[in-house]
């Protein structure tokens, strides 16, 4: 039982991180039918930004964090304005190819411009383990789970309760009808890109002490989040979260109870099973319903 709880915490602390990146996939897909294969790089770039501010320039943590989120937001804005807006009429395939290109550009650009090395990032929270009977908690895992949950809840409330959030939902469900309401769909899409980047930037700050900072971390996180979004349901924010947790827990439990050698394989098998049995994802809604 202690073992089980231990694994549960491990799985959830990874899963929630995948989930928060996956939420971005879902937001973009819902509002602009965009699949952003540069999603991982939207995490990688803020990681480096955080290193630049916090470690190189030695700015304290919180100001660095805020500046990183600001930088992420600007990046998302430019991403939408300079690239997506022009390519959107070309359809999903054009966007997929363009974002793949952009991700490569950012990845190798960072490698050349900065470093191919992995960069150090300090722990954000105490590393002194807390023992509770047989269970050992790491404050880092617990804080990550708590803080990311809070961010997701705030995001959820913003989407459900605010005027802009309602507008985002409207755009997600029908762009044309949203326009009928007088909603400026372009603005909403820009806003969603900014929001996505800020979420990715948040994930970056929490992920940096766990993964360290490296130019190609985006491939890893991007793929995990993409798989999570598909498993959970590409058209539901809930789905992204469920998918992220499913991937995180599946990895951990498969590694603990079956074998560590094929932990990634289990996630892929899970993906296949979900695609075969419920292609819209665990909590996804069939697209025909629109």
């Amino acid at each position: 039982m202690a073992n089980f709880i231990q694994l549960l915490i491990g799985g959830v602390s990874m899963g929630i991180l995948y989930g928060v990146v996956a939420i971005g996939f879902v937001l973009l897909w819902q509002t602009s039918q965009t699949i952003n294969f540069g999603q991982g790089e939207l995490v990688m770039v803020p990681m480096f930004l955080m290193v630049a501010l916090h470690i190189v320039l030695k700015i304290p943590f919180w100001p660095s964090f805020v500046l990183t989120l600001l930088g992420s937001g600007i990046m998302g804005y430019l991403f939408e304005r300079l690239m997506i807006r022009k390519l959107l009429p070309g359809g999903v395939l054009v966007i997929v190819i363009a974002t793949l290109g952009l991700s490569g550009f950012l990845r190798y650009g960072m490698q050349i411009a900065w470093t191919p090395q992995t960069l150090f990032f300090p722990h954000l929270f105490s590393t002194k383990p807390i023992e509770l009977g047989d269970i050992i908690f790491s404050p880092e895992d617990i804080w990550n789970i708590v803080l990311i949950s809070v961010i997701i809840i705030v995001l959820h409330l913003c989407i459900k309760r605010t005027k802009l959030g309602m507008a985002m939902q409207a755009v997600a469900q029908s762009r044309e009808t949203a326009e009928l309401m007088g909603i400026n769909v372009r603005h909403i899409i820009t806003l969603v890109f900014v929001l996505n980047s800020v979420l990715a930037g948040t994930a970056a700050v929490f992920a940096a002490p766990i993964f360290f900072v490296r130019y190609d971390i985006g491939i890893f996180l991007g793929v995990k989040a993409f798989v999570a979004a598909i498993i959970g349901g590409f058209n539901q924010i809930r789905g992204a979260l469920v998918g992220g947790l499913t991937v995180g827990l599946a990895e951990t439990f498969a590694a603990a109870y079956i074998t560590t050698a094929y932990r990634d394989a289990f996630v892929m098998i899970l993906l296949l099973v979900v695609l075969l049995i419920k292609p819209e994802g665990i909590v996804g809604i069939k697209e025909e319903a629109y």
């Binding site: 231990q6 915490i9 799985g11 766990i210 993964f211 990895e251 951990t252 560590t260």
Partner: peptide, 15 residues
Amino acid sequence: MACEQKQADYSAEFS
């Protein structure tokens, strides 16, 4: 125990 590259969570291994 075999681990993947870029693996960041070792709770399974540690258990």
